[in-house]
Amino acid sequence: MSPDGTASRIAWRLATVIDVVLETPRTRTLVLDVPGWPGHRAGQHVDVRLTADDGYQAERSYSIASPPEDTRLSLTVEQLKDGEVSPYLSEALHAGDTLELRGPIGGYFVWDIPTGGPLLLVGGGSGIVPLMAMLRHRDAALASAGAGAREKLPVRLLYSSRRWDEVIYRDELTSLAEKDLTLQVTHTLTREQPEGWAGFRRRIDRAMLEQVAWPASEQPRVFICGPTPLVESVASTLVELGHQPALVKTERFGPTGGAV
């Protein structure tokens, strides 16, 4: 909104791909330079528009992976089977290519430091992306603050993936948690586990949430992102466990039958 109360149009901008990072066999991060980018909040997304040489266009939405503190904008894209746009973004684009986008979009599924904690993040598959922006924002914003600031904003992340090599941001999550005792990262691997895996090996359920999530009495800010069945089930279970619906924010993607 401008000061006189009229909204200005969210403009299409031409971004340049600076780098492409391989995250998992099916997932890549596009690191973008976006001239004039107005800034964003962790959890927001952008619309991407592709144009074929005959003028045909396709648009899709992607969550922003980078925190507001980064000078570059990062989008992490999972290649969907039979996707129209994601195979192009995750395979055809290279450093130096350009991409049209507009944003930031979405003012509800967002978290920043003043929103407070504790924070409960529950993700499935590429649903980790907006949650990672929140973790990165917290890490960057509190980098120079004392340990007391982190203790006031403790985080628990419960992340469901099919197998270990499909865990997006695996090494970064490990190193964030190793240096920060107020961040607890719990993985569950639903299809296949590495040898000697001692962690969870099933879809997120009530018992897992009772064990891992903050109790409702702590009044955590809850963000759930993933395929619809995961989000529906986790959100309903948390409400059954006493969490206030108004503190439970959800973002869903994919077909109704998707599963992680």
Binding site: W12, L14, R49, L50, T51, A52, D53, G55, Y56, Q57, A58, E84, Y88, A92, D97, T98, L99, E100
Partner: peptide
């Protein structure tokens, strides 16, 4: 017309 996305063909309906 917006810039062409090199190599993008898309799915025509």
């Amino acid at each position: 017309m917006p810039p062409v996305s090199r190599g993008f063909r898309g799915r025509r309906q």
